[in-house]
């Protein structure tokens, strides 16, 4: 049987025990193998909660989540699910366990009971992918934020997952760190063929995704290709989100009847379009 869905959410609701409101309200979605899905939304929209349901850290209060066809409610399969769908968290400091980079990357495979020789291979491979080979023997607290997040990504890669879920991996980083992490994430999807779910509130980071989901108040309110989503500037602003400056500029100019496409995402695209006009 070929698996047609990496992750499926079916009528999923989630409610925190100390809250009366639903954090997630009837979510239905399917993420295909090899797909890169970005989930954006303001704080409190439920996007992080959803991510935590994807690998069984939280269980839905209603509905079901399937990872690779396995229900996250199935207690016997939970470790398999977590190995298949690895998770990178927001705070780079709070997810690194060991005092040496390579020991930390080894943590996952060690938990899976992989033989030492193979762990070694997996570490080397994972560190190469995130371009941190020369940092293998460094102490994590001496690394920059962007580097720490890449160590965390390597730690997940070493478990050989099919899918990587990143829960606001750039929220606490500076612009340089953000770029490092996003280019690594793109590489995971394009070169390593991993399914990627990226949670973020920076629109620019969703540009390379195959599909963007916009969440607000526990619901998916917009869905589509990045260009389709970003061209709806007013709709996005209504949901408390932001678009790249050039996208907003293109939107404002086209309102003045300047013949510009509305789905401009980068400075260079804008330069090309304007050059033909000016």
């Amino acid at each position: 049987m070929t698996i047609t869905a990496e992750i499926t959410a079916k009528d999923v609701c989630y409610q925190y025990t100390n809250s009366s409101a639903l954090a997630l309200n009837n979510i239905n979605l399917t993420i295909k193998p090899g797909e890169f899905v970005a989930i954006i939304g303001p704080n409190g929209s439920g996007k992080s909660t959803l991510a935590k349901l994807f690998n069984g850290i939280f269980l839905p209060t209603k509905g079901d989540i399937f990872v690779n066809g396995l229900n996250t409610k199935d207690k016997d399969k939970i470790w398999e699910i977590r190995q298949k769908a690895g998770m990178v968290f927001q705070n780079p400091d709070n997810q690194i366990v060991a005092t040496i980079v390579e020991e930390d990357v080894a943590f996952g495979p060690e938990n899976l009971g992989i033989p030492p020789k193979e762990i070694r291979q997996r570490i080397d491979e994972a560190l190469r992918t995130v371009e941190l080979t020369e940092f293998a023997n460094k102490a994590p607290h001496l690394l920059s934020g962007g580097q720490k997040q890449r160590v965390a990504i390597a730690g997940i890669l070493a478990m050989k997952p099919d899918c990587i879920i990143l829960d606001e991996p750039t929220a606490m980083l500076d612009p340089v760190g953000r770029k490092e992490v996003i280019s690594t994430v793109n590489k995971l999807n394009k070169q390593e063929g991993k399914t990627v779910v990226l949670i973020t509130h920076f629109m620019q980071e969703a540009v390379c995704a195959d599909r963007v989901l916009v969440m607000e108040k526990g619901r998916i309110v917009m869905e589509g290709k990045p260009r389709e989503i970003f061209s709806q500037v007013e709709e996005l602003k209504k949901h408390g989100l932001d678009v790249p400056q050039v996208t907003e500029l293109a939107y404002l100019l086209s309102k003045e009847n300047v013949p510009l496409p509305r789905d401009i995402l980068t400075v260079d695209e804008m330069v090309d379009c304007l050059c033909q006009l000016l």
Binding site: I57, R82, Q83, G86, F89, N94, Q95, N111, M159
Partner: peptide, 9 residues
Amino acid sequence: MAMEARCYR
């Protein structure tokens, strides 16, 4: 949470 997500048991 991060340790559990990395299959620590």
